[in-house]
Amino acid sequence: MRRKILTRTIITISIGLFIACLVVIKTTHGYSDKVEDEEGVKSENRTFVRDGITYVILDSVTMSRNGIELTRLSARMGRVALVLYGSVIVPESILNDASDFSSARGAYESATSRRAVSEKELQRLKTLNENKSVSDKVLEEANSQYVLDKNGEATALRNLELIKARIVLKWGDRISNWIFKNDSILSRLIKGEFELIEVGVPMTDTLIKKYQTALITTPSGSNIKARFLGFSGVADPVFQGRALFFLARSLNQELVPGMNVVAHVFSGSARAGVLVPKSAIVWYKSLPWVYYEKAPGEFSRVMISTELPQFDGYLVTGTLKSGDVIISKGAQLLLSEEFKSQIKVED
């Protein structure tokens, strides 16, 4: 009996020890996986520092997998732009002038029609009066009506000419012709397909006749091409300079009436450099940077200037040169990789 009890006790203890070993093995195995995982994360660090400069190492497989693209820079002559400030014009301002012109033209046409009717009636009554079929009194009344209508026509014409002169002075010849001809562009302005932009330029600027195009920068950083329309004959009340008008297509409502914008107005002079596409730029601490290939597969970050925007990127002088290879797509991934060591992983 005692032997059976002893045997059962030994079996129970053995089973307990076996279960305890399994738990220890499982726990140890889990810990090993965690360490291995943590070591795996650490092993993915692709940066190193040389001479105080941080480099990111990338191979072709990694770049292809992450959609990173390279561009070899080439020499480019870019146009220098004059940096000016302006705003998107509220359509009501031009539509109000169009309405004033339409009303004045309608009043003149009506006055002309009345004058023509009274003149014709006067001529008819003159003929009848010569035949003694109409009295002199009737003829005098007809003549008075004709004079009244003729004066009304002259007044309506002067009012129309004053409104036209005011519109031309304010908007320039091209936009004024839109108003006078009721051009379809006016309805497209109302729909927001296009936007008018007014830019103030110093009165002393001698390049005013050379303006052709501009690059409009919105508060969000978007660059939109704009076409020069002309200039106003009056000083801009806000910028205290001569007002230039540009027309830009409004895509995705990037331009909103009343919005303040920066206009890079191209004056025609040129400068040599390399063209850096906008997609290559990453912003860090509010400064523009690009990653260029210092050695095969080794990329370092360099700050550039965006003071010379072009329609398809930025003209860079000095910092980069023709033949340099830069990251043109996916540079944000390199910036994240560079500063990955600063990110603390919580348990």
Rank of each mutant, 00 (worst) to 15 (best):
T9H: 04
L160W: 00
N129H: 08
N45F: 11
C21S: 12
I94G: 02
R249K: 11
K164C: 03
D183N: 04
Q240F: 08
V238D: 10
A75E: 11
G192M: 13
E346R: 05
D324I: 15
N66I: 07
E337V: 07
V261T: 07
R249P: 02
L162K: 03
K321F: 09
R115V: 08
E69A: 09
D51I: 12
D183T: 00
A107C: 00
V90E: 08
P309V: 13
I10N: 04
I163C: 01
L334Y: 09
L215P: 01
L128D: 00
S64N: 14
R79T: 09
V325I: 15
D236G: 05
Y284D: 07
Y211S: 03
S14G: 02
S103V: 04
L247P: 08
A243Q: 08
L169H: 10
L308N: 09
V290F: 12
R50L: 13
V302L: 11
R124N: 12
F266A: 05
T218Q: 15
D347W: 10
I19K: 01
V302G: 04
R114M: 09
T112F: 03
V234W: 04
S32R: 14
D100E: 02
L255D: 07
G230D: 03
Q253A: 07
D33R: 14
M63R: 09
S187V: 14
V316Q: 09
N129Y: 10
L160T: 01
V345W: 13
A248V: 06
V265A: 02
G67Q: 12
E92S: 10
Q145N: 02
R76I: 06
A280Q: 10
L73Y: 10
A107G: 01
L333K: 10
D59P: 08
K321C: 11
G200Q: 06
Q145Y: 03
E337H: 09
G52R: 09
N96I: 04
I304W: 06
V290W: 12
D205N: 01
E198V: 14
I163D: 00
V83H: 00
S267Y: 05
A104E: 00
F246H: 11
L70W: 08
L287Q: 13
A142M: 08
N129M: 03
V56P: 07
F48G: 14
T54N: 10
F266D: 07
T319A: 13
K294F: 14
V41I: 15
A243K: 02
V23E: 09
I224G: 01
P237A: 07
T317N: 10
L255F: 04
F239P: 01
I175T: 00
D136C: 01
L6S: 08
A226F: 07
S102I: 04
V88H: 06
A75L: 06
R76F: 12
T12L: 11
W178T: 00
G297Y: 07
I179F: 00
S144D: 09
S341K: 03
E119G: 15
T71C: 05
Y31E: 12
V238W: 13
